[in-house]
């Protein structure tokens, strides 16, 4: 918490590292999907990952909270340190990691429960059962996800009654409810209409003050609009990772240039 306020007051100050990725390789069975990824992701920044489909950007994102391992044939080598803890260490529990590193998915995926129960899901599974506390958390999370005014009168209605854009912001609220440090977003606007997309983008700008955000997108304009740093992935390799402005104006790699000028992808 103390870190947060410091970071907000002076952007100049050296930001601390949340993810330190070294020599990450990943295979699905025999097929290698990621090659020697090295990346250092800072706190309170929006990091965008762009690249053509099938380049490994979603796989990489899901490796950061170890969701990729739900596929049984996955093999991983290399190291990812989350705030100095090795996440592949046997002693480091996946559940603890995911409590700090939340995720928002490509397709809105609320549970078939009420709006309230969706947001309260996270706190409840972590043992918070006090009704008053839950009420507070639910309201705060929905406010932070900029959806409170739209749903405050229908907290007990099924979340499936909300529009697609509202569902996605509800999923963001659900993710915020356990106050993670990092939020991973896997193409969170690809299933949404332009207005809902805009709302989610504004939300990301707002959330940046309190959270570190890593967002995968195939929309380069989106990356340019909302991110501080951008990484370009191609065929499982990280081609370039630098300040967003630099990457889009003066890319250092020919392949990045080809991609952002629309020559392929």
């Amino acid at each position: 918490m103390a870190n947060n306020t410091q970071a907000q007051t002076s952007n100049q100050q050296q930001k601390s590292t949340v993810f330190d990725v070294t020599d990450l390789n990943l295979w699905y069975g025999e097929d290698q999907a990621l090659y020697d990824i090295n990346m250092n992701i800072k706190q309170n920044e929006v990091t965008a990952i762009i690249g053509p489909s099938g380049c490994g950007k979603s796989t990489y994102l899901k490796t950061l909270n170890r969701m990729v391992e739900t596929v049984p044939i996955v093999r991983i080598s290399g190291s990812i340190k989350y705030k100095d803890s090795e996440i592949f260490d046997d002693k480091y529990k996946k559940e603890d990691l995911r409590t700090k590193v939340g995720m928002v998915f490509q397709k809105p995926n609320p549970f078939p429960k009420s709006v309230y129960d969706n947001v309260a899901y996270g706190p409840r599974i972590h043992g918070i059962r006090d009704k008053k506390t839950l009420d507070q958390i639910v309201e705060k999370s929905l406010r932070d996800a900029a959806i409170w005014d739209e749903v405050k009168d229908r907290l007990n209605e099924n979340a499936y009654g909300l529009s697609g854009g509202q569902q996605q912001r509800l999923c963001i609220a659900r993710c915020l409810a356990i106050e993670p440090d990092v939020i991973l977003m896997d193409e969170p606007t690809s299933a949404l209409d332009p207005i809902s997309t805009l709302k989610v983008e504004e939300l990301v700008q707002e959330l940046k003050k309190k959270y570190s955000i890593i967002i995968v997108t195939h929309n380069m304009q989106q990356a340019a609009r909302i991110s501080d740093k951008t990484a370009f992935f191609l065929n499982g390799e990280m081609v370039e990772f630098t300040e967003t402005d630099t990457l889009f104006s003066t890319p250092s790699d020919k392949r990045t240039e080809d991609y952002i000028t629309g020559r392929f992808g």
Partner: peptide, 13 residues
């Protein structure tokens, strides 16, 4: 499957 992912993603066992 995306419901399972949502749950695991929150740190649920």
């Amino acid at each position: 499957n995306d419901l399972l992912e949502a749950s695991y993603g929150m740190g649920a066992t």
